[in-house]
Each structure stands twice: as C-alpha cells, then as structure tokens.
Design a binder for these strands. Structure first.
Lengths: 357, 357
DNA sequence: CTGAAAGCGCTTACAG
DNA sequence: CTGAAAGCGCTTACAG
C-alpha cells in the first residue's frame, strides 16, 4: 500500500534525472570545449576539427545528452514542431492524413501539433493563434474554412501548406486532389456498367470538393448524352445521416434510379442503410458507389466500390512540403491521380429493373 | 504571377508581427511596473494592488499580449502541454478519446501532444522519451504495451494517467473500463433473446481487455448453465480481417451457432462480411453483437447492437485526472458502467434454426 | 576553426 | 506588495 503520508511530489527543477537532465554545458565541460562548439557540432552549423568532434560525440553518448527543444526554441527561434489544423482529430477521413504527417515529420526530428478546427472558421483562426503562440515552425491546414486571404497573410509570417484548394502565394504551398476527375471516373464506371438512371448525393456545396464532385458527375452524365436530371441530385452534407435522408427522399420521390453515386463514403453508408430499410439489396437492386475509400469501406457488406482518395500520401506530401518550404526550397509535389476501387457494391442493373424503364 | 526573383522568406527573429510579437517586458513598460509584477498578475501568483493590476490588464489588452509558452516552459519548468501516447492517431477506437482529451485540456490552457506507439512497447518507450525531451508536464497513456513497472518508474518523474489497466502508484492514476461486465451484458442479452449456441470471437488475449471480455462471455454462458464450449470460441486480434476469418472457420467447422458475440466492433464488421459472403442474413439467420460502439456502428446495415465503450468520457476523465495530479490532488474519477446499445443486428433465433438443433 | 558574451522571453527566490 | 537580478538551456553574431 502506498505511503499516503508522503507529500505530493512536485517538480524539482534541479533534480531531474531522466530525459534532458544533462545539459549542453555539461557535455561541453566533459569534452573540454565550449558550449558554442557543442551546439555547432550538434546542428552541423560549422566545420569543426575532427578531434573536437569525436570528443563531443563521445561525451554526448556517454552522458546520454538529449537537447532540450524548449531551450532550443527560445534561443534559436525554431521549435522543430509543425502545427496541423484538422477539423476533428477523430475524423475517419483525415485520420490517414494525420498519420502520414506524423510518419514523415518524425524521422526529420519534427513533432506535429494537432489542433481541431471544429468545422468553424473562427475556431480555426483561434487554432492558428494557439499554434503561433507555441512558436511552431510551420503550419499544415487540412482543407479548412479559413479564407484564402487569411492563409496568404499567415504565409508571410511562416510556411503554410494547405490541402483541398488551389492557391499560389509566397511561403505557401497548396496540395489539391482531382475531385472532378474522381467523380467523373465513378460516374463513368456506373455508366459503363449499363446504368442510365444514376442518382447523385451531393456533399456540402460550400466546399470546393463538394462542388468538384458534382461537376464531375454532371460532366460524365452529359458526355454520355444523358443530360443532367436535377431530380436525381439530392443534397447532402458529407454525413451518414444526410446520405440516409437523401435516399429516403429519393425513393419517396418515385424518380426511377438503378444506381447511386454518393459524394463520399460516409454518405454512401447512410444511403446503404436507407436502402436496407426499404428492402432494396446492394448491388442486386441498386448499385452504390462512394468516394474517399475510408478504411472501413473495405469491410462494408458488401465492400464498397469507391474512388480512392490518397489521404495517407496527402499527409506525407503535405509534411514534405512544409519541410521543403522550411529549407527554403519550392515544393513541386503533387498527389496521385484518382483511382477507382472496384469492389462489390456496383454491377450491371438488374434485367427486371431495366425492363421496367 | 508571383515574383520568383524574390529570395525565399526566412525567419527574422526581430520583426515578427503576429502572435507573440509583444513581450512581457513591453507590457511592463507600458503599465509602468516591473516584468516580475506582470508575470505575477498573469499567473495569479501573488496579491497585487488593484491599480497596478488594472494598469497591467489594460496594457495586456491594448498590446494584445500573448505569453510565449516556450519561454514560459524554459523559465518556469512547465510547458502547459500534456503528452498523449496512443497506438495510432487514426484509430477508429481511440479517436473519440483523443477528442475528449483535447476538449478538456484546451479550456485549461493545456495543449495535447499526440504521439503514436505503433502497437510496440519499444516504440512507445521512444515516444515517451520524445515527450519527456519536449518537457511535457504530464503524460496520458492510452492502454499501451509498456510494462506496469516502466509506467510506475516514469510516474516518479511526472504525473502519468494510464487507461485500460488497474494500477496504483504515487503520481499515477489508472482509469479502467469494466470490460468483464460489458461482455457479460452482451452475452446475457443474446441468452435472454433465446440463443443457446453463441459463438465468441476473442480479441488479442495478450491485452487485458481481450482477456476480460472472454471472461465475461464465459461467466454468462456458465451462469446460464450452458458451460463453456471451446469449439464456439474463435481466436481474433481485434482487426476486421481476423473477425472475417474467425467466422469462415466457424462455419467451416460445422459447429452449430445462432449468434456471434465479437470482442470488438471491428471484428464484428469482419464477421458480418463473412456471413454476407456465405449468404447468411443478420439478424434473420444469425444475430451479431459487438463491443465498443464505434461511430460507424450506428450506420452499419443493419445497425450493430453493441456494448457502449465511453471513449469520449475516457478521454475527458484522463485529461481531468492529469490536471488534478498536476494540481497536487488525488483523482477519484471513474468511468461509467457498461451499457448495451440495442440496435438491429440481434434478435430471437429463427424458429427454423432453433428447430434444427 | 573556436570562445566569450549576449540574448531568446519568461519565472522565481531574494530582498526590501 | 513589488523590484532587481539571476537563471532556465540553448544559439548566434562578434571577434579572434
């Protein structure tokens, strides 16, 4: 049983024994050089004679010296940390991107600082203030609702990488995915399967990706000579609930359809549940295609045919881009092209249904 | 077109204009007091005369002063940041906990620093070193594979909160969920529905939660006088793939069953797909119950009956606990009891199947 | 190539 | 109640 009479442990500045207990000065003393020299060797800032270098290397190893990033941040103006503004830390969509960011930042000695924008521009602005206050060296904004102008302004102060928009400005790099082409691909797939009555569940049209996906659907339909039937386009906002409601309304409208293309997988899940409730089978009665290729889409029943959105690469590239910006280079990275993941939720329209048209 | 001849912007230490450009010294000058006084007012460290306080408050507001956490960290020994060790930043299970942590840390002025342990004890150890090097004020470990001993040792240096285990030590607080009771509840539900042949998909039995859930299943089966039939227990490792394989093997074994209880929702998804492939309907032919209540479980088809694991509260409580530890108090927080989410994937066994027994 | 020195922006004993 | 001063652990012009 723990001794409850012992007073609560409090932080003692001079008695720490773990990570960081050893200071650069101690290393300098042990190696018989100045602190400045140790610093230079550690940072590769200057050429140093071989004997001093090895003396320092040994001292570092022997003492187990780990530089204190906090002191480093204060003195050098760099904190080796990168702010990451996401909408929700637990987003099934951005999760992969966060991992990609972490994966490429860590080996470079940088730490990501994740903050959630909560789908609100003002909250995002606050997040950025917090990050700036913490003196991050750069910021990655995953989509976000901040205005382009605000982003450009921040980019004058520190490197910014933003995803999901097209934008060019000094100190800023934008990484965009071809949502239009992805949506075109998905729609075309359904068309090539023989579908003619393809319903579309739109995403939030205030977002560029929502817009682009609608544009891709429309282009494919028109290219097939089917025109654009507004009765087949249902509004949505990227949530499962909105996908479900869209399909309920669609069915109630009695507008004939044999396939549904949802602007994202989450809405496709909602759509699938609505179909299930109405006793419509996927893909036997209705084909369903999503967009994003969430981790969970592979294990839907049936597995969801969808457009692969390379979020993990997105994260990796975004991180590489800030690192390049930090190094004074101009990134030229680009995302892979959209690719359709053929699974089991879409196939030719059933003969019976086709005949009914 | 941006001017490409302009040299790359580099950080200029003395010309920053945004967050943090104003220093405490400037506030002190503007208010006509010493820096020490400003510091004390800001930190509530000492009683200060009313006129100085208001002068400082005004100066802070007028100059838009934001304290620099980096300097604060170096001088005061506190960084106002809390390290959070998770297994994967994009985990569908821990995501909610991360959000809960962020939600309660932010209002308190603390920032979470998320690092991914990658399901490896050595990687976790490295994560903790990184966090210590960054001088976090405390650490939250979500489950993790580190030994109890390692955790207890770290707790001597800084406050630690760990979830998913039972442990008591100075400077450490453990927050555990009643996995046993949750599993008992789920199994009992299936029993009360009339099922007698209930298969169980185990999680990774090296993890306490895997163990406890198995124990709960077993206890419920034995309490119902059905004993423990090993042929109905399939191994798994908490992944969708393992759930799928478990059911394939189960079906191939020709061991009769009318219901499946999976140790977590992800395995339930895999199980559901396996059933789908074998043309078995849920819940018409087979009832399915999961554990965790992931966000996506509500939108399965059919929506998954499962044990609610309060991950969001878990995150909130873990964060509150570190904060209390930091304040020198002993936390007494506890997680809510397990609760079954009745949805549509489980119901009475079909008469035909029941008759076949 | 390498030191001594100043400084990053705060906090906190130490004295009044 | 409040200042002056030292110090947190580094980095970086400034001089050799």
């Amino acid at each position: 049983m723990p001794d409850k009479t012992k007073p609560a442990r409090k932080s003692r500045r001079h008695t720490e024994t773990a990570a960081g207990s050893v200071t650069l000065q101690q290393v300098a003393d042990a190696a018989g050089v100045s602190a400045a020299t140790v610093s230079r060797i550690l940072n590769g800032t200057a050429t140093v004679s071989e004997d001093k270098r090895s003396a320092v290397d040994q001292a570092v190893a022997r003492l187990g010296f780990v530089p204190n990033p906090v002191a480093r941040g204060l003195a050098g103006g760099r904190t080796l940390s990168i702010g990451v503004v996401t909408q929700a830390i637990d987003s099934p969509f951005y999760g992969g991107a966060l991992r990609g960011i972490e994966d490429t930042l860590s080996p470079a000695g940088y730490s990501p600082l994740f903050v959630s924008g909560q789908w609100s521009a003002s909250h995002e602005a606050h997040c950025i203030e917090t990050l700036r206050a913490r003196r991050v060296d750069g910021i990655i904004v995953l989509t976000g609702r901040l205005s382009d102008a605000a982003l450009v302004a921040h980019a004058q102060e520190l490197p910014i990488v933003v995803t999901g928009r097209q934008l060019r400005a000094p100190g800023l790099y934008a990484l965009d995915f071809d949502n239009y082409e992805g949506a075109r691909l998905a729609t075309h797939h359904l068309l090539s399967l023989g579908h003619r009555y393809i319903a579309f569940i739109a995403g939030d049209l205030r977002h560029p990706d929502g817009q682009e996906r609608l544009r891709g659907y429309r282009a494919a339909m028109e290219a097939a000579g089917l025109g654009f039937n507004e009765a087949l386009v249902m509004p949505g906002n990227f949530t499962e609930a909105s996908g479900l409601m869209a399909v309920e309304r669609l069915i109630d409208s009695r507008e004939p359809f044999t396939a549904i293309f949802a602007s994202n997988d989450q809405m496709a899940f909602g759509a699938r549940l609505a179909l299930h409730r109405r006793r419509l089978r996927v893909p036997d009665d209705v084909s369903l295609v999503g967009f994003d290729d969430l981790a969970s889409s592979v294990y839907c029943s049936p597995p969801l045919t969808t457009v692969h959105h390379p979020v993990h690469e997105l994260g990796q590239l975004a991180a590489s881009a800030v690192l390049q910006l930090l190094a004074g280079q101009q990134p030229t990275l680009a995302l892979p092209v959209p690719r359709l993941m053929l699974r089991e939720s879409a196939r030719e329209p059933a003969a019976t249904l086709a005949a009914a048209r």
